[in-house]
Amino acid sequence: MNGFLGYVNGSSPLHNLHPLTKMIMSVALCAPCFLSGNHLLILGIIALNLCLFASAGGAGRAITTLLSFVKFSAVLFVLQVLFIRDGTPIFTLPPGIVVTREGVMFSLLFVLRFMASTMPLALMLSVTPVGDISNVLVRNLRIPYKYAFVITTAVRFIPLFSEEMLGIMEAQTARGVEFDTKNFIKKIRLLVPLCVPLLVSSVRKIENSAISAELRGFNLRTRLSGYKQYSFGANDVLVIAACAAIIAFSASGILP
């Protein structure tokens, strides 16, 4: 409902992990996609992501997210397949475009990697409030607060901006701009003038945010300002161990 990059209330085991553990987990789930070229392993990682989403009470959302990825990936896949000419031909399309076995396999790997490597980030953001992320970035990873704030603000603003963009498109459709056209290029062309209202409203929102932060002592904040204490528990140890195992397994080359 609030875009796919927002925090979802909950108190699942995943929610209760140390924020740092969740960040490590998200990296560890991403890594195998690049360490290994095995289709099955990456499919496994996607399945694992889905299970984790489900355990955090976000199964429905995970599936919608995945479906939107699948749609996007399908386009990517077709493009890739059409452009790769090397390898064993499977069949030839009418204008003389050759579809090869290698092309299909490579493109499949490409989109699987794309999906598997994006999901852990979405997963992490849905079970971790951005405030927690920024707290551990500042305290444990010693990133200056200003940079952490930029990251968390960006994450927080994405759903606001996408809502704004939808609102703008709605307003333009209502005055006869043909956003309901099937022609993709035309749609893009129609979108261009709308960058102006989006930009204006974004600048306004950011300015307001800056004022609000300034008046609540943003400039006084130090590394140790964070109030919340996060403690590592048995679950954290387990998860980190599992992460290490996943990385080791995928890097070992046991799988072809």
């Binding site: 927002g6 925090y7 409030p129 951005v130 405030g131 927690d132 603000t153 927080r156 606001l160 306004r204 929102k205 950011i206 307001n208 945010s209 609000s212 932060a213 609540r216 002592g217 904040r221 300002s225 964070g226 109030y227 919340k228």
Partner: peptide, 17 residues
């Protein structure tokens, strides 16, 4: 735009911290 956190509690904590 005047909200700075994603959870109510963090929003209250921001200024206090």
């Amino acid at each position: 735009s005047q909200m700075l956190a994603s959870v109510v509690e963090d929003e209250i904590l921001f200024g206090l911290e």
